[in-house]
Nucleic acid binder design. Structure first.
Length: 681
DNA sequence: CCGCCTCGAGGTCA
DNA sequence: CTCGAGGCGG
């Protein structure tokens, strides 16, 4: 109640401001501190009053108002967002020894004792990683992790989370804050969500992680708003100005003051032994946390030391993720089938009685190869233990021999391809067995076509698995070249293919004809030639003809091509049926730009270069590619042997190190000049 | 590998 | 309403 006792109309601006601050305060206490102070009824009353005022006085409405969390309209897709700083993954540790080894590595690099180092430890939440950007204290964008380099802009969905402040708390927000964290759904929220779903007959979620990730990908933020999502911050990727925090733990406290939820379990442990104890303790506590975690994130607490340690290609040197042992379940093995891959590799796949492992139903598991079957001594009918390895791929861990039934049947590895009947060969010293049928084998043909049409190859839209199956079964398509002769009329005879779908496919094929040499090489499906190698080959040879004619020695001088890959490529182009297919593809109108490529001098041959900081005129990857094209190796860390360091804006410890070691340092302008000179030579 | 979302199209039924 | 394709993420 107001205490003025006056019946004068209160100042509207003042009241809306007060309501907003009270509501955000309540959000903060409830969703960030987990200490609700306002009853739901009071909250609702204030919220409605604010809505009412804003409706009456539209001039008072601001985008930051708590009433504006839920956007009105569905988006029509998400935009690509390039992370200013990549969202890296962490190296994993699976036991105490690996944790100690991590601490030891860090200590050696810092030339100190592991026992003296402070490590910040916190639960590794199992949700979806996102990044939020605040400018002048206001939330301006939010994105998914994506591949780490670019993610999807899901700002309007993230705005609906009440644990995501629209405005940072406090009078002096930083000019820039990019905060990373995990969006999760608690067990309680998950149950409530599924209860609601069951009541209105819609789909229930399999586990909280997928529910969280799925909710973030809704086009309509109004749906996202109904999901009990929570954001937990774990890192400040950018903070300007630097607010003087010396440790990760202090920085997390700072984030919490700014209104962001951080882990209540965070603790700083001194030395690896204490870290291991923390991991054990958290493991014990895991079930009482109320949300899913899959391990512990361990970071060097001191931020200056973090900077000194820096990064390797994919992960920071100053952190590691301890993963709890994967959950195991037992089930029965009903059957083993043998799948034939694109290269003819025969993979035994266990068909299991469906069993739920860590929230997902597992009914298949790979047995890898004959050696693995022998090692496990597994038979059909056995009771087996299943685990999801590395979070993902289901694995048969062991067999319960005590439960082996009388009639358990040994698994016979076939001598002939289950699909085409060709001999199965296993080369000396190799674990894999292969169908020798080549493209005579329909299974290999299907896989080859799938590969040919895939996104990173010719990217034929609408040519999916089922359709390829039909086309191969009917013998309409024997080689990729045949695809381009398909007619709308005949396609319509296939199930689920009407006039529209057929025309779309033919159009997609026509579009796909125009491609690049790199994609084309990749699409051929030469053994061991993936996307990266194909790109290297295209850049090196420039023309298909040059690649075809290349001898083994020339092939081996290409980046990343060794004797084995060279031999695969060489052999591929000398098979008559491959030659026929190539000719047929070109005849069908498949085309790509060809360029005579400088195979001339490589001015940076034998040198190692390092890039650091932010470049204005290109991405670091582009700079790297151009250096590599000149023959240089590009590495991530500066050493005595480094030929030069390219330092962009905000270069850090690498610059210092280079200066110490007397390594030549180039600023961006100089680098560009040199590049031009080198490339011209 | 599995689960999730979205889209376009085909099939079914009234 | 259902299916297939495509994309994302862990």
């Amino acid at each position: 109640m107001r205490q003025t006792g006056s019946d004068q109309t209160p100042d509207v601006a003042e009241e809306t401001a007060r309501l907003r601050s009270e509501i955000e305060d309540a959000n903060y206490r409830y969703y960030v501190l987990d200490e609700p102070t306002l009853s739901d009824a009071d909250y609702d009353r204030k919220f409605r009053r604010l809505q009412e005022l804003e409706a009456q006085h539209p001039e008072q409405l601001t985008a930051d108002s708590p009433t504006q969390r839920v956007g009105a309209k569905p988006a029509d897709g998400f935009e690509e967002v390039v992370h200013a700083i990549p969202m890296l993954s962490l190296d994993n540790a699976f036991n105490a020894d690996e944790i100690s080894a991590f601490a030891q590595r860090v200590a050696e690099r810092l030339e100190c004792t592991a026992d003296d180092l402070g490590f910040s430890c916190e639960p590794k939440l199992d949700g979806a990683a996102v990044s939020l950007v605040y400018e002048q204290g206001r939330l301006v964008s939010g994105a998914t992790r994506g591949d780490g380099r670019t993610g999807e802009g899901i700002t309007s969905n993230l705005r609906t989370l009440r644990s995501v402040p629209l405005v940072l708390r406090g009078d002096n927000p930083p000019a820039l804050l990019e905060v990373r964290g995990e969006v999760i759904i608690s067990h309680e929220g998950f149950e409530a969500c599924n209860k609601a779903a069951r009541e209105n007959g819609s789909k229930v979620f399999a586990n909280p992680r997928n529910a969280a990730a799925g909710s973030l990908r809704q086009l309509d933020p109004r749906i996202t708003a109904t999901r009990p999502l929570a954001f937990h911050a774990y890192q400040a990727a950018r903070l300007e100005p630097d607010m003087g925090d010396e440790t990760h733990s202090a920085l997390m406290q700072r984030l919490s003051q700014l209104g962001l939820r951080t882990s209540k379990e965070l603790a700083v442990m001194k030395g690896p032994q204490a870290v291991v104890e923390y991991c054990h303790a958290l493991g014990e506590k895991r079930d009482q946390l109320g949300y899913d975690i899959d391990g512990v994130v361990i970071k060097v607490n001191n931020l200056r030391l973090q900077r000194e340690l820096g990064f390797v290609a994919r992960a920071p040197r100053w952190a590691v993720a301890f993963k709890f042992p994967a959950q195991e379940e037992t089930t029965t093995l009903n059957e083993v089938e043998f799948q034939v891959g694109r290269t003819g590799a025969i993979t035994p796949v266990a068909r299991l009685a469906p069993v739920s492992v860590a929230g997902v139903t597992v009914s298949n598991a790979t047995l890898h190869n004959a050696d693995e079957i022998a090692r496990l001594d597994v038979r059909i009918g056995d009771t087996v233990t299943i685990r999801r390895a590395g979070d993902v791929i289901p694995q048969v861990v062991r067999v319960d021999l005590a439960k082996r039934p009388e009639n358990a049947r040994p698994i016979e590895f076939p001598d002939n391809c289950p699909v085409c009947g060709s001999d199965i060969e296993r080369l000396e010293g190799e674990a894999v067995a292969r169908c020798s049928g080549g493209l005579y084998c329909p299974a290999q043909r299907k896989e080859a076509l799938k590969h040919f049409a895939s996104r990173k190859a010719l990217d034929v839209d609408g040519l999916g698995e089922k359709l390829i199956e039909q086309l191969v079964e009917r013998d309409w398509v024997k080689t990729p070249a045949d695809l381009f002769h398909l007619k709308v009329g005949e396609l319509q005879n296939l199930p689920r293919m009407g006039e529209k779908s057929s025309a779309n496919l033919v159009n997609a094929l026509n579009t796909a004809k125009r491609t690049t040499l790199a994609r084309f090489i990749y699409a051929l499906g030469i053994r061991e030639v993936g996307e990266a190698t194909a790109a290297n080959l295209a850049a090196y040879f420039g023309t298909l003809n040059a690649l075809e004619q290349a001898d083994l020695e020339t092939l081996e001088s290409v980046n990343d091509v060794g004797p084995i890959v060279a031999a695969h490529i060489h052999t591929f182009f000398r098979q008559p049926h491959n030659q026929q297919t190539l000719v047929a593809l070109l005849d069908a109108g498949v085309s790509f730009d060809e360029a005579e490529v400088h195979q001339g001098p490589k001015p940076l041959e034998g040198q190692t270069w390092v890039l650091t900081g932010t470049l204005e005129s290109m991405t670091r990857d582009d700079g790297k590619a151009r250096l590599q094209a000149l023959g240089a190796k590009v590495s991530g860390s500066v050493s005595k042997k480094t030929a030069g360091l390219v330092a962009g804006a905000a270069a850090g410890s690498k610059l210092t190190k280079a200066e110490q070691l007397g390594v030549e340092v180039l600023d961006e302008a100089t680098f560009l000049n040199r590049l031009q000179a080198w490339e011209a030579s």
